[in-house]
Structures are given as C-alpha cells and as structure tokens.
Nucleic acid binder design. Structure first.
Lengths: 172, 172
DNA sequence: CGAATTCACTTAACATGTTAATTATCTCCC
DNA sequence: GGGAGATAATTAACATGTTAAGTGAATTCG
C-alpha cells in the first residue's frame, strides 16, 4: 500500500504490460542483491591484493576466532555449502593457510584450524578491511547500520523454516 | 541481541586477538548474504519446478516488462555481468524462450526480446512467485518491508561510486 | 580514406553456488 | 558380530560470478 520510495520508471515508454508484477528492480531479492554487491565492491579490491577471494576470507576469519572446528560446523559459520567449502579448504591447505587432521574419536570428522601463515595473512589484511568497514559505517551512519542489521536479522528469522522441513535445532 | 548461533567463545585459547574484529557472523556482508539467502530459499523450489534458475527468471522478468532491449542494458536491469548474461542468453535462446536479432543501425548491438513460449512460461510461474512474495510480505509486515527496502536503497546509494569511477547516469 | 581507438558482445579461465551421487565411517539393533 | 541405516566429507556435474582477453563493428581523427 502506498509504497513508492523512488520512481525511475524505466519501463514506462513501452506498451501494454497489464500485470507488471512487482517492478522487478524493486523486488526484495534484487534490493538485497544490489545492496550486498555495493558493499562487497568496497572490499573485493583489498582482498584481491592479498590473493584472497571473499569466501576464502570468510573462512579465515571464522577460523581465526577459534581453536579448531569441524568442517560441517565451519560451513555453518562461514555460511558456505559443503562442496564449496571442500574445494576451498583443499586450496587453502595447499597454500598452507590452514591445517587439517582427522579427529581421533570419529574418523569421519576432520578438524580444521588456521596456520601460522594464515594468521600472518589475516593480520596483513585486517587493517584495510576494518578501515573499509569503518568508512561504510561512517557513510551510512552507525545507528542506521545497526537498525538495518536488526531488520535483516528479523527478516531472516521470520523466514526460517518456512515451507520446508527445516529443523530449527539451532540450540542457542 | 543475545543470539549466538555458534559462538562457544573458545577464542580465548589462542593467543593475542586483541582486535577480535567484528564478530564476523554479524558483519554487514554476512547479514545481507544470509537475509538474501533466506528469501531466495523461498523461491528456488518453485522456479526449479519450472526448470528455471534464479538468474534465468530475472532475465525473463526483465524482458517481460519491455519490448526489446540491448544486451548491455539488460545486464544492468537484471543485475548480471556480461559474461554470465551471454551464457544464459545462449541457453534461453536454445530453449526458445527468448529471441535475438542484431540491430540494423549498429551491427554490434543485439536486441533481445522474450518469445511467445517465454511469455507462456512466465505466466505459469508468476502466480506461485507472487504468492510467495505475498507470504513474505505478510510475515515480515508490509510496512517493515518497505522500510527495509528504503534502507537498502540508501545503503546502495551512499556506497555508489566510492573509490571507483562510476557514472550515475540514470537515464530512463 | 585508413590506422588507432573505442565499443558491444563473446570466450576463456578460474572460483563458487547448487544439487545429486559417492565414499568412508559410525550407530543402532537384531 | 554383522548388516541396515545414518553421518561427515568429498566428488561430480552443471550454472553462475568474476576478471581478462578476444572478436568484429563503429567512431575518431590525422
């Protein structure tokens, strides 16, 4: 109802279209996609300078905060799917940025941890990363940023386990 | 606040870590990524039933709203990079969902339009798509949704052309 | 006019997203 | 103890994201 934040209407010059659906460029998925892309565009160059992709950086950051972690748990933390994670871990291990060893108690599980080299790399990237984040925070406004994140969290929450048989065994 | 998905705080065992950085799972890029994923998770099954990926659907939706469009312009509308779009258009053309013909005035340009079949497919998917969107809107709240999109737009705007030479030619 | 440049699009090459299938291990239960 | 089923991780196969290079056509300008 009565929502129209901005109106470029770059589809008005054309014919018919009785059911324009949601203006498409203003759909929620597109809004989220564009916003995220705008943010990542700030970070990618810095990461690239250090030979890291966004996902590799996510993994290293996740690992830096803990001692060791199982692959499955890491996948959830870094928000990556298993197959992607497998490939990336293989590469990161080849670059000696992480270490792996199978758990004694359960041979299926493999415990992952960051290596000395990985820590060093982290240390060399973190400053620019933090600087970029600070710049974004300042531009957008710290309060507004917090508000936005709060809303994003709520959106995520209210869509959790909708339509699919998802176990919300989130503990915590 | 007070939500800790997987943060056993076993970060003390490692040395130093004077600057824990942003809790990582609460960084803006992660928030946006998770929120978008939560949304797309609602749509993907329906699209998949019709043999469409998210990006293919974006393209068809963009095409449905206009007569014909150049590839570059379509890339901007559907928010896809050139190479991705090239591949997808090749596939969609093979499936007879779109049509292409080079512009007379400029042989470099190729004009893209949706085909009859494409329109039919759209018509068969649109209802479920709209239903899902309605469900999301209801769950999250229409007002809140508008608010969120407004903030996302502002975020995008305030990061536009930061550090890079971006023209904000909005034409239309 | 014609060589250099720019432009629109495509290909190429590599990394990730996504789903399904595989492999190895572990658990349960008879 | 051993086989059926569950689990952790990987591999496979295909689609897209991302950057760089390539191709052909248009434009610029000497």
């Amino acid at each position: 109802m009565a929502k129209r934040p901005a109106e470029p209407t770059n589809a008005g010059a054309h014919a018919a279209r009785q059911v324009p659906m949601r203006d498409f460029s203003r759909s929620l998925p597109m809004s989220l996609l564009r916003a995220r892309e705008a943010v990542m565009r700030q970070f990618r160059p810095a990461l690239r300078e250090h030979g890291l992709t966004e996902q590799q950086w996510r993994i290293l950051r996740a690992l830096a905060a803990i001692e060791t972690i199982e692959v499955t748990e890491l996948a959830r933390t870094a928000f990556l799917l298993g197959p992607s994670l497998s490939r990336i871990l293989r590469d990161l291990e080849a670059r000696n940025l992480i270490e792996r060893k199978t758990a004694k108690a359960d041979q299926r599980r493999s415990m992952v941890s960051i290596s000395k080299e990985g820590v060093k790399l982290m240390a060399s990237v973190a400053p620019s990363s933090e600087a970029i984040y600070a710049e974004i925070t300042q531009r957008f406004g710290a309060r507004k940023l917090a508000e936005l994140q709060e809303m994003l969290g709520q959106l995520e929450l209210c869509l959790a386990s909708t339509g699919a048989s998802d176990d919300v065994t989130d503990e915590t």
